[in-house]
Design a protein around this nucleic acid. Structure first.
Lengths: 212, 212, 212, 212
DNA sequence: AATGAATGAGCCTTCATTCAT
DNA sequence: AATGAATGAAGGCTCATTCAT
């Protein structure tokens, strides 16, 4: 009978938060358990009480991260009614004054670098992508119910839209001097509208034949 | 009085190649100098003779990587005459049977994860992007000289095109089960064509106003 | 005002029993207080209430072990009337289906390894041996009262008999594939009878002079 | 081409020697790699160059120990011609002024405690015993060729002789105050002679029936 | 009486780097 | 030019012990 029954949940949240902030600050390659302990205000042994190993902690932290970021995406999309607005509602990803993003992107880049080599991590990434795709697809199908986005292949299109978000984000975050937020927002909208429009054209895209 | 004057260049190339292959295989976080020595067929001391530290070696290896990959992009683009074909000529990035890519993507993801935190690395990345953009811009301007891509903002557009390449690549490489090569190629072409077309429309994109 | 006055004794017995079983299972080198707590069905704090430190607990556990095992030896010997039968009554030490022995031998080997280095432990061992010797001596003297074992030096002989028990036990327990129970029993009887007989011979043993 | 080709062998011997001495001094349970490094005059990393882990080192050290001690037993036995003298030639095991023994017994007790739980260690012990038995058997069979030890079961007898050596050694080493070297030597000779004589008696040992 | 969260010292191991040869 | 033995700092993990409740 612990004095506070929710203590474990509280501590775990505390630790995951500290882990994410510390990983984002130092990078996965350099962060030490001591760094995280310090941020969490806990001793090595205290942390070990909740997460048995560094890998345990990292997995939990990354999962927490992906859960949170997706939740935010979902919540934000739900603020809009118009299908196209929904599809473009993730523009908060390019808001440089959002402090969460300065944790989120470092985490994401680190995570992907690991996912290249670690199967478990890659699985988490794939699942996360699946979630985004499902969310985007709901918006796209809603549009089609309203007789918009005619001819668009929903599955392929949401994969592409999501990929475009990520491509722009990558440049926006890693080369901010040349890739302004204005560019990111404009690019996103042009690309997404252009992509969706491409399905409506009479002449097939493939007609262009771009490789020998 | 080196017996073979070119020995240094030969050894350095040999070491950089070994480093890239070994980093790609194990990941930056796990690779050791010993791993690289083994791949290079050299001893620790031998390697140290040419690169003074791990960081030295990594920097040189990454630079070599970016040089090579860009060279390949440039060469491939030059095979085409048509501006649009030039813009789409980087589709070799989605060729799953190209062994170089299975070194290149791991290297790239690792590199970006480091670039988030290390200024020197980020600079290399930015320069590399600049090169890509210049290359794409040449193709785009060539098109405009031929009265195509009217109204397109060359700088913004090539940034977007390049970002789209990377976004698609990210998904194609990290979630290959759902993101097929066919999807990647189709997405690329649709997005790029759609993007360029978006500039030609009478109604400005911004007119859509997708955020409050 | 303890609710149950005997609670302390009950708990202590419970803990000692758990400690012995757990040490036997994992070995002194590997056993943790947590292991013992789990076996005892008590928390760390609970255990700490009764034994202030690991060393405290181990000392108490070993003493308990030696007390129990001696008690069993004494009780068993008392079942016999004939002095020789008494001397050989410890053959239960070689009963492979006795579950206590699978706790006892691991404990004993661990204990001796510690006793090599720790004075307190060695003292416990010496006292235990003294007890065995006194027990055996009673049987031997009884025999001499009955005009048997003539010429036998009681002190030296019981030390030897006891040592033989242990030597056979060591092999029987640690190399059971080659050292069968039948061998152990036969060896014991031959050795003890042979030893006692050796005192009766006219020619002194020492006459043989086996070293330079 | 190392300057000294035998360097590895030299270092390994150095390290094993240091390990055995340090384990003997502190006991397996307490000895640290640092202790051993200090004794060996090597750094942590230097030791790691030769033995990859603590377990690696311990296994090698124990094997070395058993090899050496057996070699000594064999060499000593070969100094004698008379079969009985050969059988009793291991009396050097009870020579308190032999410094090797003050390393050997601690090692042996520690080893046996581990062998109880670790299969690999137990195997080493069993093999070692086999070697002793084979050595003793050679002496015993030599005696039988000379028409001595008639009726003795060679395999059972050497197991018992060897066990008696160990039993006496255990007491002699762990309870030296009461178990003098004189006692040990006398006990050994009486027991072994008595054991061998027991086979020659007409009345079977088993006739005594020592258990119900 | 009993819990279990928290501490922190200590240990094994890894690995980039150095340097004598 | 090249080797690889040797160093030692640093990190992850374990675990006996403490203490507020």
């Amino acid at each position: 009978m612990p004095p506070i029954p929710e203590l474990e949940a509280i501590r775990k949240a505390q630790i995951l938060d500290a882990a994410l902030r510390t990983i984002a600050e130092h990078g996965c390659a350099n962060v030490t358990m001591d760094d995280i302990c310090r941020t969490a205000g806990l001793s090595k042994g205290g942390l070990n009480h909740y997460y048995k190993s560094k890998n345990d902690l990292f997995m939990a932290a990354f999962q927490e991260f992906f859960k949170q970021i997706f939740q935010r995406g979902e919540d934000t999309m739900n603020l809009y009614d118009d299908p196209m607005e929904k599809l473009l509602s993730f523009s908060w990803l390019y808001n440089e004054s959002d402090p969460d993003l300065h944790i989120g992107y470092p985490i994401l880049f680190d995570f992907m670098a690991i996912a290249v080599h670690e199967h478990d991590y890659r699985k988490i990434f794939e699942d996360w992508i699946e979630n985004w795709l499902a969310l985007l697809k709901k918006a796209l199908l809603l549009g089609q119910k309203q007789d918009r986005f005619q001819g668009v292949d929903p599955d392929a299109a949401v994969m592409t839209i999501s990929a475009i978000y990520q491509g722009i984000a990558t440049r926006w975050y890693l080369a901010p001097d040349t890739h302004s937020t204005a560019w990111a927002l404009d690019s996103l909208e042009r690309s997404v509208r252009g992509l969706l429009a491409s399905y409506g054209e009479t002449s097939q895209v493939k007609g262009g034949g771009y490789h020998k």
